[in-house]
Design a protein around this nucleic acid. Structure first.
Lengths: 135, 135
DNA sequence: TTAAATGTAACAACATTTATTACAAATACA
DNA sequence: TGTATTTGTAATAAATGTTGTTACATTTAA
């Protein structure tokens, strides 16, 4: 994960959770994170697909949390933005004529999946609520 | 980790470990991984800095493992190539005038470090030898 | 002396990430 | 009804990161 997406969406949701019931617009949220409002809207669009957020267009519009912060685990958040295995990418075409090359990706699959699942299990025990309570 | 460096160095070391005592050149190793020999030499240069590998220039030159595969943990391998936290990057300038923005990076530090350490602890229990024995 | 290999710099090609511009569609409210 | 404001999203630009390639000095075996 060489991007800021996890940090960005947890920031967005933390703000929405602390202002439950208020319509907050993307400009305002972007001002807290100090990033471009369009990026905030794109992430919020994904959070809406998960059912965590609702939006309202037009004047006085904005975004609002649509569930209790207890109902969102950090594992779910991570899955939304995860774009690679923790240990990285595998080489695409190892030489199948080499005894190592032939089997390495199968072995790496096992190791890479085990590592990913370890992290997911840990994040599964944490909720957005518990994250916010640490503040 | 959105790159192939971990996969590449574990592949290199697996080959060297299974051909202990032989000088293997970068061209040959690259042929097993199916990548450019210069990249192999760059990675091997880093593995040498760790003391895991020795090299010999010139005709009949190449690379050789310089320690038992039991002495290299996957945690050490990972540290060599790690270039970001597992949960990604933090936003650089959250707004310090916002109560969330002010403290979020401190909270994320805790979470991100805890996650990284979980993975390192797991990789610490695995050695290059144990990885190779699974083949 | 020659052929073959490492070591490394410089650069090119490609991929990913983040920022920005632009504008249609929706909505509140005067 | 009309205007200002906001979402939704596409298109594109700018910045950064990754991988591949070329080139060549240096080292070494035979």
């Amino acid at each position: 994960m060489n991007n800021t997406r996890f940090a960005t969406i947890i920031h967005i949701l933390t703000i929405l959770a602390t202002k439950m019931g208020e319509w907050l617009n993307s400009e305002w949220i972007a001002g807290s994170i100090n990033i471009n409002p369009v990026i905030v809207r794109k992430e919020l669009s994904i959070l809406q697909e998960q059912g965590w957020v609702i939006s309202r267009k037009g004047k006085e519009g904005g975004f609002m949390l649509n569930t209790s912060s207890e109902n969102i685990t950090l594992a779910e958040l991570y899955k939304v933005v995860k774009n690679s295995d923790i240990l990285g990418k595998k080489n695409q075409n190892p030489n199948s004529k080499c005894p190592i090359g032939k089997d390495i990706n199968k072995e790496l699959d096992t190791l890479f999946n085990e590592t990913d699942e370890l992290v997911l299990a840990s994040l599964q025990t944490k909720t957005l609520k518990s994250f916010i309570e640490q503040f």
